[in-house]
Structures are given as C-alpha cells and as structure tokens.
C-alpha cells in the first residue's frame, strides 16, 4: 500500500472531492438540463400531436368546403336555368303583347281609315247635292232648251270640279 502511495487520508480526500463534484455537477448542470430535456421532449410530443389534430381538422374542413362548393355549383346552375326560363317566358309575353298591340293598332287604323272614308264619301255626297242644286238653279234661271241645259250642267260640273281642284 505504501509503495503505491495509497493512504487513507488521501483516498478520502479524492473520494470526497469526487462526491462533492458529483453533487455540484448534479445541482448545476444535470438537474436543469435533465428537466429541460424532459420538458422539451414533452413539448415536441405535444406540438406533434397538435399538428396531427390540425392536419386532420384541415382535411375534414377541406372536405366540407368541397361539398359546399359542389352544392353551391348545383344551386347556381339551378338559378341560372330558372333565370333563363323566366327570361324566355318574359320575352314570349313581350312578343305576344307587342303583336297584340300592333294588331290592335292596325285595327284601330283600319277603322279610322274606314271612318275617314265614310266621312269623305259623305262630304262628297253633300257637295254633289249642293252642286246639283246650284246647277239646277242655274238651269232654272237661264234655260230652256235641253241643249243649253245639258251644256250648262256640264259647265257647272266642270266649274265645280275646277273649284274643288283650286
């Protein structure tokens, strides 16, 4: 033992030094680092789990969105089709109305024309009657032979026509 230099005193010194070192290392480094490593592992585990749930949620919500989009598309198509129907119906109605309007207008025009014609004919008839009376008066005034009679009528007629023309 002596030749190797082992003495109880020195052995205890080194042993206690080592134990103190062990204790202080534990206090200074191992404890905090171990706690930190554990908490970090826990944190990583938690965040991985959170990421997983978020991923699942995202997947499900994407599905939902897709379905909604599909529904909306169908809806839109329906609306468009309805609008198209309504428009064509409206157009037909308008066309019908226009047509009937035109027809009624034509009708009205026709009756108007007819009325005008009748009025004109009436007026002409009235004029003729007046002329005839005038001519008769003249005949009565100057007249006597048939010959001058008829030439007189012609003259009146001609005058009448010329007057009308003027």
């Amino acid at each position: 033992m002596d030749a190797l230099g082992i003495t109880v005193q020195q052995l205890l010194t080194q042993l206690v030094s080592f134990l103190i070192l062990f204790f202080l290392l534990y206090k200074l480094a191992y404890g905090p680092i171990m706690g930190m490593l554990d908490s970090r592992a826990q944190k990583i585990k938690d965040s991985l789990e959170a990421a997983e749930t978020a991923r699942l949620e995202a997947a499900s919500s994407a599905e939902r969105v897709e379905a909604e989009i599909a529904a909306a598309r169908v809806e839109g198509q329906k609306i468009v089709a309805e609008a198209r129907d309504a428009a064509s119906k409206l157009r037909e109605q308008e066309q019908d109305r226009a047509r009937s309007d035109v027809e009624s207008m034509i009708e009205r025009a026709r009756t108007e024309i007819a009325r005008e014609k009748e009025a004109a004919v009436e007026e002409v008839r009235k004029e003729f009657a007046g002329l005839a009376i005038t001519a008769a008066e003249r005949i009565v005034e100057g007249s006597l032979d048939a010959k001058s009679h008829s030439s007189l009528i012609d003259k009146v007629l001609e005058d009448g026509i010329g007057e009308r023309k003027n």
Binding site: L24, L25, L28, A29, I33, G35, M36
Partner: peptide
C-alpha cells in the same frame, strides 16, 4: 495530484455552471 484534481474539477464546474445557469429550449 490533489491540486490537479481540484483544478480539473473547477474547470468542470465552470462549464457546468455556464451550461446550466440559464437553460433554454
């Protein structure tokens, strides 16, 4: 030899102190 043991120990404790005084994630 005891002197060198303590010297090494002090170096080790210094490193441990620097490493462990403010652990961060």
């Amino acid at each position: 030899s005891t002197i060198m043991f303590w010297f090494g120990g002090i170096i080790l404790l210094f490193v441990a102190w620097r490493a462990g005084r403010n652990v961060k994630d």
